[in-house]
């Protein structure tokens, strides 16, 4: 669709994204749309944007130790095994949560956000104060989401670059022994893959 140059030091918007932003800013200036209301509407489609291959990737890693090892060694070809490849999925790095370490990803601000893997970025990530707080006080951000980590758990924040997009491999919830990959993938939320939430618990899915 576009041959937008691919420098790595500045932000990137596709031709189509430029047109959508142009419309949005004109209509906002003229009072035809309210950006906050638009965000609320769009957020209701969180799980309806993109194929969310990330949930499948996580569920496979939970059930297949060899795949998990390949994923952590080099995520891009491992994700490719599931049939997913694409410009925005290039150079993906998977970071694994453990009882001692919680990973959290920031930077969802431009085209580099890997939505084919993760789904729609959270609206709050676009807000500068939240973003700043995520870098300075990640534990506080997690608390804002009602997500209390033991004080002994370290938090590591990954700031995506134009070359590298991170996603979090969350810990498999307890009580899911013997679950199929498909059923497990239903537990994997967008927030658990950017590290601002936990996967759903077994009781939360039918």
């Amino acid at each position: 669709m576009t041959d937008h140059h691919h420098d790595h030091d500045h932000s990137e918007l596709s031709e189509t994204e430029l047109r959508v932003r142009a419309l949005e800013s004109i209509l906002t200036e003229k009072g035809y749309i309210d950006p906050a209301a638009l965000d609320v509407l769009i957020e209701t489609y969180e799980t309806k944007v993109g194929p969310r291959n990330g949930a499948r990737v996580v569920a496979r890693a939970w059930t297949d130790p060899a795949f998990r090892a390949r994923l952590l060694a080099d995520a891009t070809p491992a994700i490719g095994e599931l049939g997913y490849a694409g410009r925005q999925g290039e150079h993906i790095v998977a970071v694994e949560n453990t009882p001692e370490l919680q990973n959290m990803v920031v930077c969802t601000l431009c085209s580099c956000y890997p939505w084919p893997v993760l789904g729609l970025p959270p609206v709050w990530y676009k807000s500068a104060p939240y973003r700043a707080k995520a870098v300075k006080d990640p534990r506080g951000v997690l608390q804002d989401f009602g997500f209390e980590l033991p004080p002994t758990t370290k938090i590591r924040v990954w700031d995506s670059t134009a070359e590298i997009r991170y996603f979090v491999l969350p810990m498999r919830p307890e009580g899911t022994e013997g679950w199929s990959e498909e059923k497990l993938s239903e537990l994997v939320t967008r927030d658990s893959m950017i590290g601002t939430g936990l996967p759903k618990q077994p009781g939360e899915v039918a």
Binding site: D9, S11, L18, L23, S25, L109, K126, T161
Partner: peptide, 23 residues
């Protein structure tokens, strides 16, 4: 529309990666 589209393009070009793109 074209004027705003071009302006957003310039805004993206001058915005370091990872920063909010603002017009």
């Amino acid at each position: 529309l074209t004027r705003y589209r071009d302006a957003w393009d310039r805004a993206a070009d001058r915005t370091p990666h990872g920063r909010p793109i603002e017009l």
